[in-house]
């Protein structure tokens, strides 16, 4: 597997401000990667560096095998799609004209634009001016230009902000399709829980540094967060249930007919086996630590160490 992206010791300073510090990441082809972090964590700067829009202060960057600020890198941008945060288009042109303009720049035929607009649900507005578009429609136009011409690499900066849930779903479907075609994609997002099911790798950034990177499961066990189990029990049987599970859960609390347990990840199966033998337990819900929690846990650890 050749690396689609390889960053080694990359740093970017704007005057005294270090936007990105010593970032080293390697991403394989066909992976979907979530880049998560606060505003100002350096996500957008990292995108700009990988696109060759700014030069790194230190370190080396290879994107699709080329340094993005060289003419070779410029050529390889034919195969890169980018959706910037808060995408803006010229208001005077129609959606179709806008897309055709970008198609020309990507050396693609203008005839594929109409179908692509249809695909992102803008078919009815293709001939209307972008100035009349809603925020969600502009975002969809932005997505259309990013996936123009079958890119091998996609950079999506906060792609789902301002989209309603239905459109968001459609958006993830499209990303899933591209993933099946072997497209490498990097998404940054605030809405972490949405991303969980759709990513292979997570890169957590904080104040310009990579705090943690890896597969979600690996990060989950690294963070050592508890699995939470919620039980519904027949009224009056709290004591029995708690007795049956004694020693397995690291903490428990009960209110009304529900019991909340927290346990280490490795004890989860044992508890489930035990639960199935207790007839007074009516229902069970298990919550793995979410991406949000993992993210918070790493940031917390970082702040404590600092």
């Amino acid at each position: 597997m050749t690396a689609a992206i390889c960053l080694a010791g990359v740093a970017k300073r704007y005057g005294a401000l270090a936007a990105v510090r010593d970032v080293s990441i390697e991403l394989g082809q066909g992976q979907t990667v979530a880049l998560v972090g606060h505003n100002g964590a350096g996500k957008t700067t990292l995108f700009k560096l990988m696109l060759g829009l700014t030069r790194a202060s230190a370190g080396s960057i290879r994107v699709l095998g080329a340094d993005p600020v060289t003419p070779n890198g410029q050529r390889s941008r034919l195969e890169i799609g980018y959706l910037p945060e808060n995408v803006v288009f010229s208001n005077a042109l129609s959606g179709l004209e806008t897309l055709q303009f970008y198609a020309t720049l990507k050396r693609r035929s203008r005839s594929e634009c109409a179908a692509l607009l249809e695909r992102v649900g803008l078919g009815h507005a293709a001939r209307k001016r972008v100035g009349t578009y809603s925020k969600g429609m502009r975002q969809r136009l932005g997505l259309a230009q990013a996936v123009l011409g079958a890119p091998r690499l996609l950079f999506l900066d906060e792609p789902t902000t301002g989209l309603d849930p239905l459109v968001r779903q459609g958006f993830y479907e499209l990303v899933g399709e591209l993933r099946d075609r072997g497209v490498t994609a990097i998404l940054s997002s605030h809405a972490l829980s949405e991303l969980e099911a759709r990513i292979d790798q997570v890169v957590i950034m904080h104040k310009g540094e990579v705090v943690a990177a890896g597969a979600l499961d690996a990060l989950r066990s690294l963070a050592g967060l508890p699995v939470r189990i919620r039980l519904s029990v027949s009224s009056g049987f709290h004591g029995e249930v708690l007795y049956a599970l004694a020693g397995l859960a690291s903490s428990s609390s009960s209110s009304g007919d529900t019991i909340e347990l927290a346990c280490e990840s490795r004890r989860k199966m044992e508890i489930i086996r035990r639960i199935s033998g207790v007839p007074q337990i009516l229902d069970v819900a298990i919550a793995e630590p979410s991406l949000d929690e993992i993210y918070a846990s790493f940031l917390h650890g970082k702040d404590k160490a600092a």
Partner: peptide
Amino acid sequence: DRGTLLLLLSYPVA
């Protein structure tokens, strides 16, 4: 200022 150049220069345009 408007942010349109950011997108344009992410294309293979010198």
